[in-house]
Design a binder for these strands. Sequence first.
RNA 1: GGCGCCGUAGCCAAGUGGCUAAGGCAGCGGAUUGCAAAUCCGCCAUCGUCGGUUCAACUCCGACCGGCGCCUCCA
Length: 514
Amino acid sequence: MIRVYNTLTRNKEPFETVQPGKVGMYLCGPTVYKPSHIGHMVGPVIFDAVKRYLVYSGYKVTWVVNITDVDDKLINESNARGVQMSQLAAEMTADYMNNIQALGVDTIDHFPRCTATMPEIIEFTKQLIDRGYAYATDGDVYFDVVKSKEYGKLSHRGLEAMQGDGGGMADRKRSSADFALWKSAKPGEPSWDSPWGKGRPGWHIECSAMSRSLLGETFDIHGGGLDLMFPHHENEIAQSECCHGKPMAKYWMHNGLVQASDEVGKVGGRNTHAVEGDLSSQEAGKISKSKGSQAFSDLLKNFSPEAVRFFILSTHYRRPIDYSEDRLKEIETGMETFYRFFKRYERVVGASFYAVAEPKTRKEGDFTPGDDPLLKTVAEQRERFLESMDDDFNTGGGMAVLFDMVRTLNKFVDDEKLEEPARRDAKKLHSLTDGVKTFKEIAATMGLFRKPVEAKSAGDDALVGKLMELLIELRAESRKKKDFATADRIRNGLLEAGVILEDRPGGTDWSVKA
RNA sequence: GGCGCCGUAGCCAAGUGGCUAAGGCAGCGGAUUGCAAAUCCGCCAUCGUCGGUUCAACUCCGACCGGCGCCUCCA
């Protein structure tokens, strides 16, 4: 039984779908006016894991992520750059797509764009006016917040929290808390025809319109960053629930935000005060923000996407995550354990780890270990993993099981001395592969270890291969003759060049230093 | 001011009313190795402070201290 923390009730609730066996999931996507940073990647990675786990658990899941490609920020930025808004949006959308793809987020079913959803948005707005929840003034349309009885139920905030927009619109609105569904266009701004004249949608209405047209009036999971809870999600609820008279989403899931720790943030205790003493808290905030908003595509030049995914999933999704390069390096170090094991598996079994076919569903993965001690342990670990994931998608707890499981598998190879070809037999290799299947099964639910990571640098070059073969051969001869001075000279020399040699029963392996 | 979150080993981080408080990084000791590397084994926390509830709390309640987020655009 899966349990989900619902922001609406502030409780973990049993997961029950609107329609049996089916899940509709909506995640608020980016406004594409600048390159995405790591913060934009958290939602996609987390909900990718959520979807994978739900599919694994037997649900048919439809996942929608919207792209906001018209908005004040886009207009400003495109003016500043002197390009068409649509061009800027197209470029930044491509950047976003590249980044999430690099992270292995490939389970999103629909990416509706705001500019391609105008008829639905206009229709939705019209309905709200017809049903008495919105009103038009001078080409603008506003949502009449006082008509929404439950306004504030998600964020637990009252109407007074909704400040006026201070942009001179106050006199057009009945109440300062009212928010725009449709904004009339100023000269030169991109605009669309509507019953209220030329204009563009307000920020919140697109999500209501898109989710309705792709997922229906009530769907299962609505996700987004914690920062969107108010006012964005509150307003979505007001729009959709007033319009339909029924719940918009059963479960509201909010992920914690990335916090970039830099010099200021990292220094503890008194030094923090000393450093911050010269800065207003606002300025300090800006510093940490500027580091965190480094373009994600640049970050990927230094770190593997899989490490970033691992990093994001290593803590519980509702918690804030501290991002730093040191942290990511630490994660990469830890992940070496897995990659080394994968190579080890290949050495021992003679087949690629990545070629092993894992069970795709929970049902398929259930097995009775019999009296095989290895598989008994693996089965227990799998159970522990599933318990963690069932409990509000606790990927952090699941990670621990991943590490435990490789250790179990490594120990088996050690104990059975499977590095020595003579000690291998079909039964043992079969057990090992069964263990690997289960490892892959649980890792796959988090989208991990699905395909080989590209080699850190050159190494598969034919010439390099030949040279290494020769050096290793020479060193082997020296070792045979107990000429360790020469052998060590070769190894140390290669180490300086960034090549690590590892001696094993079956021969010597080499790899490029990470 | 309003709404909310957090405080677990040197660092990161799961989790639980009573059983050995996961895991990772770093460190230390050992097995293995010609020596290494890798791997394995072992060691390394009483859970911010104080008070309450309870047979029993790190886990529930309260106060306090400390850190943080949102309330304007933000994933």
